[in-house]
């Protein structure tokens, strides 16, 4: 696998493009089926499960890493309202922080990504924060 460049604090503030995602009923149903989520509204595909924004995948220029060396350390989502089938959300993800820590396995890099999704009127629907740990 390619050797990805080191992640440094220079990346803080760097952003993805704004990407429009349409919340599809079928995608909600498929997600609920995989999770064996029995929430009726999710099984029907009406309301997206709380972790559904994980399906909104975006890239930030200059931020890449070897998937085999990354651990998902933590994740948060905050909602103004739930996502529903038919919603069109404009999402963007930004490097909120990069820092290094000495751990048991040597130096680890912590990459904090902040995501926001807005509805078509520009109101925030949700935010997400990802902590990725690279070893």
């Amino acid at each position: 696998m390619d050797h990805s460049p080191a992640l440094t604090s220079d990346l803080i503030g760097r952003e993805s493009e704004v990407v429009l995602f349409e919340v599809e009923r079928g995608a909600i149903r498929k997600f609920a089926d995989a999770v064996q989520d029995q929430t009726s509204a999710c099984v029907r595909g009406d309301v997206a499960p709380p972790t559904f924004p994980t399906t909104f995948r975006m890239t930030i220029p200059g931020v890449s890493f070897d998937l085999a060396r990354v651990l998902h350390g933590a994740q948060e989502y905050q909602y103004e309202r739930p996502l529903r089938a038919g919603d069109r959300v404009r999402c963007r993800v930004r490097v909120a922080d990069v820092y290094h820590r000495q751990g048991r396995l040597g130096e680890m890099t912590f990459l904090i990504l902040a995501m926001e999704g807005q509805d078509e009127s520009g109101s925030r629907v949700f935010t997400g924060t990802t902590t990725a740990i690279l070893r």
Binding site: D37, P50, H72, A74, Y77
Partner: peptide, 30 residues
């Protein structure tokens, strides 16, 4: 397993406890 699968279980748990329209925040460490 994907850490996010375990988090999705907690998402379902919150929907079961409070209803899918009622979840305002979920924050986890793996």
């Amino acid at each position: 397993a994907h850490g996010m699968l375990s988090m999705a279980f907690l998402g379902e748990y919150l929907c079961w406890l409070a209803g899918p329209e009622s979840v305002r925040r979920i924050s986890v460490r793996f």
